[in-house]
């Protein structure tokens, strides 16, 4: 009788530990998955490693260190100054990784300049509680224009189905979580349609020419990780469709008629500047990284009033 009791009790502690472990794991996983920025950091970091190790980029470790160091330092400066949520370092890390993926420069100082401009733009160029420019984009555009020492290599990714799979797969996962996949998809669709019409129907190139252009890793990265930045896209879904279609058209025109090979970047900078007008015209709820994200903006009542903490 006595023996039986012990037997009955014994399994419980073990089960309890197991349960606790499972719960801790689950909580960690849920905590990780709740913020799409975690995925973004993992994927962008993965792309950077892939570029350096498999694609033979001439990206040096100290360059990445300077970019990431400067973005984080600038972010922490503003966190302290404005008393923001410390978790916003994740946004700065994403910007830093984005810059490491895209921007090349002759000196480390130029890279540091780009990184600090990028982060500072988030806090200094704002409209109604929302920053206007995609920070990485702002840093790149200004540095390329001002220093003459920085450049983008649109060919660095090459082309290939495997890239399409990697970038689109990773990108859509991040985007599904934040509900802004529409921007990337609309951009790619319109851009490809324009290219098909001109290259195939008008000029008479084969389909492989359009395909080769669309498979460009830089373009895909742009479509899935840059233009989709939820903080700088218009809030209303309809506005986003128009906005991304406009980016595609401007980028196509610049690339085709002016031979600007980095046209999407410039088009995005232009249209970002117009985002406040889209927001005024179409309304919509502002995005927040930490709120239970409005999936395709179906829960517009949340976080209508932006707070400093969310920058």
């Amino acid at each position: 009788m006595f023996q039986k009791k012990i037997e009955a009790i014994e399994p419980h502690p073990a089960k309890g530990v197991q349960q606790l472990r499972t719960t801790v794991m689950q909580e960690r996983i849920t905590a990780f998955a709740r913020d799409a920025r975690h995925f973004q950091i993992v994927f962008l970091g993965g792309f950077l490693l892939f570029g350096i190790l498999a694609l033979d980029w001439s990206r040096r470790a100290e360059e990445v260190a300077v970019i990431l160091g400067t973005t984080l330092a600038t972010q922490f400066f503003f966190i302290r100054r404005l008393g923001l949520d410390i978790r916003s370092w994740k946004s700065a890390a994403i910007t830093g990784l984005g810059l490491s993926l895209l921007l090349h420069a002759g000196s480390l100082v130029t890279l540091a300049l780009a990184a600090s401009l990028a982060i500072a733009s988030k806090f200094l160029i704002r409209d109604r509680g929302k920053h206007i420019f995609n920070p990485g984009l702002f840093g790149i555009v200004l540095t390329v224009l001002l220093t003459g020492d920085a450049w983008i290599s649109p060919g660095q990714w090459g082309t290939g189905p495997i890239l399409l799979f990697l970038i689109a797969g990773a990108g859509s996962m991040v985007l599904l979580r934040v509900g802004r996949i529409d921007t990337g998809v609309v951009f790619l669709t319109v851009y490809m349609a324009l290219d098909l019409v001109r290259s195939m129907l008008y000029l008479g190139w084969g389909f492989d020419v359009t395909l080769h252009r669309m498979m460009n890793g830089s373009l895909l990265l742009f479509a899935f990780f840059m233009i989709t930045d939820p903080m700088t896209t218009p809030n209303a879904p309809r506005a986003r469709v128009l906005w991304s279609a406009a980016i595609a058209m401007v980028a196509f025109a610049m690339g085709t008629f002016a031979y600007v090979h980095t046209a999407p970047i410039w088009a995005l900078a232009l249209l970002c500047a117009l985002t406040p007008f889209f927001d005024r015209a179409f309304g919509g709820a502002r995005f927040s990284w930490l709120a239970p994200a409005p999936f395709h903006d179906r829960a517009p009542t949340l976080n209508v009033e932006p707070t400093l903490q969310e920058r």
């Binding site: 996983i29 993992v42 994927f43 892939f50 495997i162 599904l176 979580r177 999936f295």
Partner: peptide, 30 residues
């Protein structure tokens, strides 16, 4: 190293894809 890295990224995506549906449904019920 290239092959290894590709494998690494694939597994990352696989891991992510595993969590994704769960977090999506989690959000809808919330």
């Amino acid at each position: 190293s290239g092959t290894m890295l590709l494998l690494g990224i694939f597994s990352l995506i696989a891991v992510g894809a595993y969590f994704l549906p769960r977090s999506l449904t989690g959000r809808h019920t919330a």
